[in-house]
């Protein structure tokens, strides 16, 4: 049971990194990124290939994951930020699907649908102590991300991206170029997703293309909507709530044994969907409340 709990906490911490990236992009800047999983995927594969295939130190894979995911966001930003919000959403969704198709097809590099096994663990050993060590590293990474996030939110840069979210035309009218800020935010969020992907690859020990379908992106969206967009606490609480739904529904079968394993998968997604509908109806500002009072 303790091992299970630690495992859930590790996955939650990995997802919090994703949620923080999207909170920066959507909650603060208003960028509708429907392709978050693409950057997560790039990070995971970068870490997997460099450590499992090339045998490089884990830290190299992590750095590559961050840099490559961030770099991938740059051209997307240049092209897409000239588009309107809704088109930007479609372009990013298309981007993440393109990434998934590339890792499926580039068999020499990624081993195609079979995926890459044997990615070394972050901490050797199989006991609960090694899992706790991984969790500690993840918490440290989350702590660093949250520290940087808070510095940014409280700064003139943070003020400007919120101004862009509220009214981009007015920002232009005041002599500032919104595209410059949006590209930086896109790259930062993507780099965070890349970091998250590297943790994921080293924790699961195996990556394959079907782990990176658009559902992951929308799980992250559900998390920040439930927690409250534009707030650090919203990203954390929302992600925890999402995991509670996804994992908690697992135990439903203990109470109601007549539900088959196949039904369970649908019920799980249904439960998250229902929660999302109820949140939008009764608490649209999210669990942690209005993002105008975030500080």
């Amino acid at each position: 049971m303790e091992a299970y709990l630690v495992a859930i906490l590790i996955i939650t911490a990995i997802y919090v990194l994703l949620s923080l990236g999207l909170t920066l992009q959507y909650g603060l800047t208003g960028l509708i990124n429907f392709g978050h999983v693409g950057f997560f995927c790039i990070g995971a594969y970068a870490a997997a290939i460099l450590s499992a295939y090339a045998g490089l130190p884990v830290i190299v894979g992590f750095l590559a994951a961050i840099v490559l995911a961030g770099l991938a966001a740059f051209p997307i930003g240049l092209i897409a930020l000239r588009l309107r919000d809704d088109y930007f959403a479609i372009v990013t969704l298309g981007f993440s699907e393109t990434v998934r198709i590339i890792v499926t097809s580039e068999k020499q590099l990624t081993n195609g649908v079979q995926g890459i096994p044997g990615i070394p663990r972050l901490v050797d050993g199989v006991g609960i102590l090694s899992a706790l060590a991984v969790l500690a590293v993840l918490l440290a990474a989350n702590g660093a991300a949250i520290y940087a996030f808070r510095r940014i939110v409280a700064s003139p840069f943070g003020r400007m991206i919120e101004a862009i979210r509220d009214n981009e035309e007015a920002v232009k009218a005041l002599g500032k170029d919104p595209a410059r800020f949006k590209i930086q935010v896109l790259v930062l969020g993507a780099a965070l997703a890349g970091l998250s992907g590297a943790f994921y690859a080293h924790y699961i020990g195996y990556v394959s293309p079907d782990q990176f379908n658009p559902l992951v992106t929308f799980y992250v969206w559900m998390a920040i909507i439930m927690g409250g967009v534009g707030r650090i606490s919203g990203a954390i609480v929302g992600t925890a709530l999402l995991m509670l739904f996804l994992e908690g529904s697992r135990f439903l079968r203990d109470v109601m044994p007549f539900i088959s394993a196949v039904d369970m998968a649908s019920i799980r997604i249904g439960a998250v969907g229902l929660a999302l509908v109820l949140f939008t109806l009764y608490r649209p500002q999210g669990l942690m409340g209005d993002f105008t009072r975030r500080r």
Partner: peptide, 9 residues
Amino acid sequence: QVPKEFAHL
């Protein structure tokens, strides 16, 4: 013509 304030700021 219609003010474009940064509403949440």
